[in-house]
């Protein structure tokens, strides 16, 4: 196990991190829209959002990635594999994040919304100034959990031809015949990344500590 091999793994970690973080961010935006739709009580919004969520929660990410990668060219959209990977991961995490957020939104006490109403906030101001911040604080631990799950699931994007940590480790292991130190290093890199994410989460949660109840 040389420095050079470890450097190659670290380079691959950049694609793991990049794809995961971009997917989490895009997924979060979609999740806000999805959760707002599921809470709208209007079936034209609720039904498509529920269908979306059931599909992306109910089908393995691996199958989703393969479907997106093979389906898009058939309907005439040629996308680089990195786009297919980000699309697949974003849609999948959006479904999970949406369910977390919905739970958060539903847990915002009715009285806090009434307090906004009687002080004259518009429904839109109430949503962005009161409901979203409180729902986010309530769902923060679950969202950090989801970020870690997505970072680990990103090993699956190798099936659409992305070289990330796991794929790089497999390639290096088969060409160097040093599987144990290489896979151990890969594990270490995942562990370090996810520990940092968890630490950031803890820190952020504590800095919101005054707002916990």
């Amino acid at each position: 196990m040389t420095i050079k091999l470890f450097t190659l793994l670290l380079q691959a970690a950049i694609s793991t991190l990049g794809i995961s973080l971009i997917s989490i961010a895009i997924g979060f935006v979609i999740a806000i829209i999805l959760s707002a739709a599921t809470l709208s009580h209007k079936s034209i919004y609720v039904v498509p959002a529920r269908l979306f969520i059931s599909f992306f929660r109910g089908v393995p990410l691996l199958v989703q990635l393969l479907l997106i990668y093979t389906l898009l060219p058939v309907i005439g959209i040629n996308v680089p594999s990195i786009v297919a990977a980000i699309v697949g991961m974003s849609l999948c995490t959006a479904a999970y994040q949406a369910e977390n957020l919905r739970g958060g939104f539903e847990s915002v006490p009715r009285g806090l919304i009434e307090a906004a109403e009687v002080t004259g906030l518009s429904p839109r101001q109430t949503f962005f100034r009161i409901r979203v911040p409180i729902a986010l604080r309530l769902t923060f631990p679950a969202l950090i959990n989801e970020a870690i799950m997505i970072l680990k699931s990103s090993s699956l994007v190798s099936v659409v031809g992305i070289i990330e940590i796991t794929k790089m480790a497999q390639d290096l292991a088969s060409s160097t015949y040093l599987p144990i130190p290489i896979f151990a290093s890969a594990a270490l890199i995942y562990l370090v990344i996810n520990s940092i994410v968890a630490l950031i989460g803890r820190f952020a949660e504590r800095s919101l500590g005054g707002a916990s109840t």
């Binding site: 006490p109 806090l112 518009s122 100034r129 911040p133 409180i134």
Partner: peptide, 22 residues
């Protein structure tokens, strides 16, 4: 009855919120 202060804002934030946004 239940005060209904917004938990993510300080006392000052609660009192000044509508003055700012509305």
């Amino acid at each position: 009855q239940q005060f209904n202060l917004w938990p993510h804002m300080t006392a000052l934030g609660n009192v000044s919120e509508a003055l700012k946004t509305v």
